[in-house]
Amino acid sequence: MTDYSPLLLSLKVAGISTFFVFIFGVFFAHLFSRKKFFGKSIIESLFMLPLVLPPTVVGFGLLILFGKNGFIGSWLLNWFDFQVVFTWIGAVIASIVVSFPLMYQSAAAAFESLDARMENAARTMGASNWRVFWTISFRLAWPGLLAGLVLSFARGLGEFGATLMLAGYIPGKTDTIPMAIYFAVESGQMEKATFWVVIIVALGFSTIMWLNWWSRRNIERYKNDNA
């Protein structure tokens, strides 16, 4: 009888993380897409940083922030009696941080390539900024946003380094699929490792496959659009 808890945990962690990453990513990408201000490129570089840093460095940084004595961690502990380190929520946070750059980049590209006249046209018709965003910008940017969403989910599913630092490896509590694989390989349990490798490859492959199929169909549909 195989223990499927790593699969459920991985889906839960990647799912919740993708939810937050999507909201934050879309929010900041839209906020920054048509604005130029001092320090914008600094903030954007900061956003992209987790993409190029080694995962253990990201993990260590998160430990310092969210640890029991960390800047945010001690505050959460004192006011909400809420601990992030060594819990599955730590895995969610690690996953958010490493997949945010993917979402932000996709969303920023999607919003920047929008035809500004579409939004302007909606505005002249009296639509509030919120309505313009929701009915025009968001809808038209959706293919790019969805790409970011799927990539973030796939990245969250595969996240290992930072998660191991922040969430630790507690069997039954914080053992996601990548952790199960890593420790199975390291201890020579090849059968167990292979089982999880097959599952995570199938998951990752099918999400990306689906995205490719979907975006191709979508491109066909709007092909004659820019007359």
């Binding site: 006249r117 579409m118 046209a121 509030s128």
Partner: peptide, 19 residues
């Protein structure tokens, strides 16, 4: 704000919402 000016604007190439 544009929204409160109550004007109609016909853009070059029309800018119809494709979706």
């Amino acid at each position: 704000p544009t929204q409160q000016r109550n004007i109609g604007y016909l853009f070059q190439d029309y800018a119809l919402f494709p979706h």
